[in-house]
Every structure is written in C-alpha cells, then in structure tokens.
C-alpha cells in the first residue's frame, strides 16, 4: 500500500475536472432542492441535454461551436419547462417521478440503435471540442509539487472553477434578494406564500429553469473536459452522487455544493485508489473471490449510497451546517 500515492490521487481528483462536474450539478440541485424544496431526481437528464446539445449541433448538424453552446442552454431551458408544466402544481413527489423517469428515458433515446445517426448510439459522439481546445492559452502543464495537472487538464480546471465561481456569484446575488426569500418560503409552505399573493408556480418554474440550466452547464463542461459524450455517463448515479455532494456540504448555502463536491470526490477517489491498490497486481491484498478490480470501482457507489442515507437521517444540514436553518428535517 502506498498511502502517499492514494492521498495524491485523491487530492488531484478533488480539485480536478470530474469534481467540478459534480460541483456544478450540485449547485443546480441546490437551487432546486436546497432553496426551493423541489425534488429534481433527474439532474443527469439536464446534464445529458447540455452535453448532447453541443455535440449534436457541432458533429451532426455541422453548426459552430458557440451555436452548440447556445443550443445546450436552450435545451436545458426547454427540458425544465417540459418537466415543470405538468408537475409544479402537484405534490412534490410528482416532479421527482417525472424527472427521474425523463432522465432515464433520455438516456435510452441518446443510446438507441435506431437514432444512431443523430446521437451516435451507445458509442456516443466525439469531435466537437476543437474550438475549446484551441482556446487553451497554456503552453504547458503545471506542477505544484505534490500534485500536477497536464496542459489540457489545467485548461479544464481553469474554465471549470471559473464557471463554478460565476454560478456561485449568481446564486448568492439571487438568494439574498426578495426573490430568494420567496423561494425559501415556498420550500417551507407554499400555501402560505400563495395566500400572500405570490404566483408560486411561476417562482417554482424560474427555480427549476435556473437550476436546470446550471445542470445543463455541468453537462456542457462534462462534454468539454471528456471530449466525448457517452449515454451511459448520464445515468441516475450521477444525480445521486450530486445529491450526496450537496448534502455533505450543506443544502441552502451558496458554497455548500462546492465544499461538498470537493470533499466527496476526495473521499471517493481516495477510496477508489485504496481498493484499486488492494485488488491490483499478481498477488492482491484482497483475495479475488472477495473483490476483483472491476468490483473495486463499485465501492464508491456503495459507500455513496450509504452516505446519502446516513447524511439525510443524521446530519441533513451537512457537515458544517446549522440544523436550525435547514428546512428539510421536519416534514
């Protein structure tokens, strides 16, 4: 066992592009669930339309890169409206049901054999990120001593953390305003808000769109840093991991998803590296009947599932949160 190596991998991953994808997805869920109380269990669907919006526009329709970026946002916006219209007047579980169902359906459509010419089937699409790569101003990677990033990852994390900063700024500015106050009130009791003359449906829709578009941005960034979109990447596990990241850092706080995403990804990468080491080589530490190397990568999902349950039960306010402020414990 090489603990230093595990620590290095974990730290590198925690600040790296993949963590950023989860942070962005979790910021969107924070707008939905944390501030407004909307249960969006289909963030992976928003991410998928964000990613495919770019890829399909550039690869299949031969559009420009920037048009593709615009299409990503429009696609996420349209998805939010389609999901919100039938559900936002109903009890909270309907939105959850429709979003999780839609995200799975989208994954089926994007991966389907029959629509291979449009979405690339199960192999997905590649070859849309040239403009993004050419924008890379760095000539070389960076070596921070303990961790280092290659040239394109350096560009990815520059762009990624900038996007995170912008999203956090927007969320902060909105949530301190009277608009944010209406959202937090809806989370507590939407009938009370309605009785005071607020159009609850419109506010929920605005929140769904905002969080969904941040989700689309997460998908867009995912597509850029990966340089390929593959349908299986956008399964429900993605959504559930983002929820866990949010709950680790604390819902309804601007920096909650950022802190949570980094911590979660640090722990999961560390765990993955640990079990990876324990199952690799000709004479692995763990016997293969107990765990082989493909099983070792599953430990992160098992642990995340458990963590999500335990957090929700014992610390719904997150690791650093104040229980009085969080509205999701009682009802």
């Amino acid at each position: 066992m090489d603990f230093l190596e595990i620590l290095r991998t974990a730290l590198q991953q925690a600040l790296g592009p993949t963590a950023i994808v989860y942070v962005l997805a979790a910021i969107g869920i924070n707008v939905h669930f944390g501030y407004t109380g909307l249960l969006n269990f289909g963030q992976s669907g928003f991410m998928a339309v964000g990613a495919y919006g770019l890829a399909v526009t550039v690869v299949i329709l031969d559009g420009s890169f920037w048009l593709g970026v615009a299409v990503s946002f429009v696609a996420a916006l349209a998805l939010a409206i389609v999901l919100g219209l039938p559900t936002l007047r109903l009890r909270a579980d309907y939105l959850a049901i429709v979003t999780i169902a839609t995200s799975e359906a989208l994954r089926l459509v994007f991966g389907s054999v029959e629509m291979k010419d449009t979405f690339g089937g199960s192999n997905g699409l590649t070859g849309y990120s040239k403009v993004y790569k050419d924008l890379n101003p760095y000539s070389d990677g960076i070596d921070l001593g303990f961790i280092s990033y290659r040239r394109d990852d350096l560009w990815n994390i520059t762009v990624g953390w900038s996007l995170v900063a912008i999203c956090c700024l927007v969320v902060w500015a909105l949530m301190r305003s009277p608009w944010g106050r209406v959202l937090r009130s809806i989370r507590e009791d939407e009938d009370a808000v309605r009785s005071l003359g607020k159009n609850v449906f419109a506010y929920k829709m605005q929140a769904l769109i905002l969080g969904g578009m941040i989700g689309g941005l997460a998908g867009l960034f995912f597509a850029l840093k990966q340089a390929s979109v593959v349908p299986t990447d956008y399964n429900t596990n993605l959504t559930f991991l983002a929820y866990t990241a949010l709950l680790v850092g604390g819902a309804a706080r601007v920096l909650g998803p950022v802190v949570g995403g980094v911590i979660l990804w640090f722990l999961l990468s560390g765990l993955g590296a640990t079990f990876g080491q324990m199952t690799s080589g000709p004479d692995p530490i763990l016997p293969t009947w107990l765990m082989d190397s493909s099983q070792s990568s599953l430990t992160r999902f098992i642990v995340t599932g458990l963590a999500l349950m335990l957090l929700m039960i014992f610390r719904p306010q997150g690791i650093f949160g104040d229980r009085r402020e969080i509205a999701i414990d009682g009802r």
Binding site: L174, P178, R181, R184, S185, E188, D189, L196
Partner: peptide
C-alpha cells in the same frame, strides 16, 4: 414560515416588490 425570521416573514407579505422579479433580483 418557521425557518425564516419574524421580520422576513413580514417582508414576504408586501406586494409589488421589484426584488421579487428574477431579472432585477441580483
């Protein structure tokens, strides 16, 4: 609204607030 302060509860009641409009709120 139990998790809002008393004064925030009150402020919510006012109608025609510019700050409750999405585009002006930030």
């Amino acid at each position: 609204l139990a998790k809002l302060t008393v004064i925030e509860n009150m402020r919510l009641g006012a109608t025609g607030q510019k700050g409750e409009k999405f585009w002006l709120a930030p």
